[in-house]
Design a binder for these strands. Sequence first.
RNA 1: GAGGGUGUAGCGAAGUUGGUUAUCGCGACGGCCUGUCACGCCGUAGAUCGCGGGUUCGAGUCCCGUCAUCCUCGCCA
Length: 634
Amino acid sequence: MFLCRSKNRSSPRPRGVSINCHTSSYRIVFVYLKGVHMAEHFSKRTATCGSLTKADDKKAVILNGWVHRHRDHGMIHFINLRDRYGITQVIVDDDSSKELQQVALSLNLEDCISVTGVVRARPASMVNPEMATGEIEVKAEQIEILSTCAPLPFQIDDGNVPREELRLKYRYLDLRTEGMKKRIKLRHDTVWAIRRYLSARGFYEIETPTMIKSTPEGARDFLVPSRIHVGKFYALPQSPQLFKQILMVGGMDKYFQIARCYRDEDARGDRQPEFTQLDLEMSFVTRDDVLSTMEGLFGYVFKEVMDYDLPPTFRRFSYEEAMNTYGCDKPDLRFGLELQDMNDLASRSTFATFKEIVAQGGHVKALCAPHSEIVDFSRKYITDLENAAKVYGAHGLAWMKVGENNTINGGISKFFEGLQGEIIDRFDAKEGDMILFVAHKEWKKTCASLSAVRSKLGKDLQLIRPGFEFCWIVDFPLFEYNEERGQWEAAHHMFSMPQAEYIDTMEEDPGKVKGDLYDLVLNGYEVASGSIRIHDVELQKRIFRICNFDDETAQERFGFLLTAFSFSPPPHGGIAPGIDRIVMIMAGESSIHEVIAFPKNTAGISPMDDSPSFVEEKQLEELHLKIVYPEKKE
RNA sequence: GAGGGUGUAGCGAAGUUGGUUAUCGCGACGGCCUGUCACGCCGUAGAUCGCGGGUUCGAGUCCCGUCAUCCUCGCCA
C-alpha cells in the first residue's frame, strides 16, 4: 500500500515539517526525523505528554494525543493535549500561520491529534505548579487531526462522574479518565510485582485449561456445549484447583498462574461472574510455608507498588477466635469494638428473654460503642443499628447506656440490677458509651448480627484507621452440615487436609473436624483462601464418603485426580488470592468494577458489547441445543 | 428467590404541604477576547420528568404496575 508512494521518499523534508497529500481518501504524511525518511499515516510522536521538562527547552517534538481542553482566547489558543502519560499545554498564537489557527479553531474536545512544534520554557509568571509539565509548553507549528470525536455521551474528566451504566457502555471513554488510568496501572504494577517475586523464588507460571470437566459441587458452573460430542459439555473452571494439584503430582514443585475463574452466581460489588485469582501451589510444604510465602509476597508487592510497609508477619486468629472476637471470619482490624460473651451475666440478670436463650444453649453477646461527638445515640440511631443486625437474623438489638459514676441506664439496664459494675468492667466502659446486645439461639447468627452492628459503628463513628491490615484466619471446620440437603459438605472444598488429630475419628462427628485451611483477610475482605491438600487416595475417598459421594460417583467425577494420586503425589498445599479484590482495596475502592477494564454489571450483563445475547438458530442446531423458555408467572 | 435505594436536557444535580412558562452547574452551538491552565464575557438551542395506568379541577411531586440500574439477604466449595 505504501510502496506505490515510496518514490516520494526522495524528497526529504526539514525536521518537524510535513506535507499532507490528499491523493487518496486518507492522508499520507512524510516525516523527516533523526535522519530517517519514513512514510507514515501521521506524524509519529517523539515524546509523550508527560515527559517534557525544562531540560527540553527549544527541542523540536511531535506529540500525539487527545484534546483534553481547549481555551480559545481569540488570537491565542491553549490546547491541553493528553495521552496516557500526562498532559502538555500546546499553544497556537498570532505568530502561527492562518492555516494552523484555522485548525486550532476547528478542534473539538477529545479529537485525536498530532502536534508538531517546539518546546519552550514558560516564563516564571506562567509556570503552572499544579501540572507535572507546568514548566514548559509546546509552541505548535502544525496540527494534524488524526480522528475526530463524536458528541460525547458524558464529559471525560470532571467531578461529575456519570452513572455506572453509562461508564460501562462507553468504557473506552471512561478509561480515558485519570482515575481509571491510575487504577489500571496499579493493577498492572501489582500483577507484575507478583510475577517478579514468585519467578525469582522458583515458581513456574503455568497455564491450565479453561474448558474442563464440570464438577458438580460448589458454585454453579458456566457450561460450554460441545459441537462434536452431542449432549456433552465443557465447564469453565471455578478455579484451576484440580489441575494445580495434578501439576504437583507432575513434579512442578512450585506453580502459580494469574488465572481467570468463572462462577455462575449472583454478582456483588466485590464479586463478578468472571474474576482473576493468583492461583498458587507448592510441594513439600506445611501450612506455615504457604503463609510465610504470602507474607513475603504481599510485603514485596505493597512496598514496590505503593511504598507501603507491611509487618513481616500477619496476625493469626483461629476461626472460632475471629468469630467470637469480631463476629465474622473476615474481620476489619482497622478498628476495635470487640465482642464480649455475655452468657454469664445474662443468666444472672432478670431479663427473661436472655435467660431463656442462654438456658436453651443460645448465645448473648455484646459490644460497647464509645461515646461519640459524631453520632448521637438516639432512639432512631439505635433502630438503624437494630435493622443492620436483623438482616443477619437477630430478632432485636438490646441496649443500655453508661451514665456517670459507673451506672447504667435506659433500655434493658433495669434487668441488670447489681451487675452494672461487672458489665462496665468487662468493656472498660466510660460515661456516654452505649452497650449493645444480641441474643440468638444460633452462635453463628449471634456473631453475624453483632458483627453487622460493629461494622456500621466503625463506619458511622469514623473509627476506621487508614492503612492496610492483613490477618490470617486458620483452623476452619472442614465440614458443614447442609440442612437443606441433609448431609455433610466440605466447608472449603473436598481436597483439603483434616488436621492430624482428627483424621482417625473424623467420621464420628464431622462437625468437630478442623481442617488445614486458611483465609487471608485484608481490611474486612476475604482476599485469599487456601489449604494443605490431601495426597493420600484412601483419605481422599473417606472425605468423599462423608460428603455423600460413594466410590463410584467419586470415581466418575474425580477419577483422573484419584488416578493421578495413585502415582506418588507429593505432600502439597496452596492458596488463591483474589487479584480484583486486593487491587480494589489498594485503590481504596469499594467495587471491583473500578479495577477491571471491562466488568459486567450486577445482572451479569456487559453493557458495552451487550452480552449475553441470543445466538443464531443455526448455531443452536449445530450444537443440538433447543431453548425451553420458562413459563411466565401470573 | 426476597428487601431497599435511584431514574428530571448530552452529563451531574435542585425541585417545598400537589398549583402559572420545570431550575442550576458542566457540556454543545454562535459571537467577543493575546497568557490561560476548571480561562472569562454575551447569546442560542436542548426535557414526552424511565415507561404504562390511576387519584385529582390540576401530578416531576400521591397511589398501583412495569422496566432499567445500584446496594443488601439468600447464593457464592
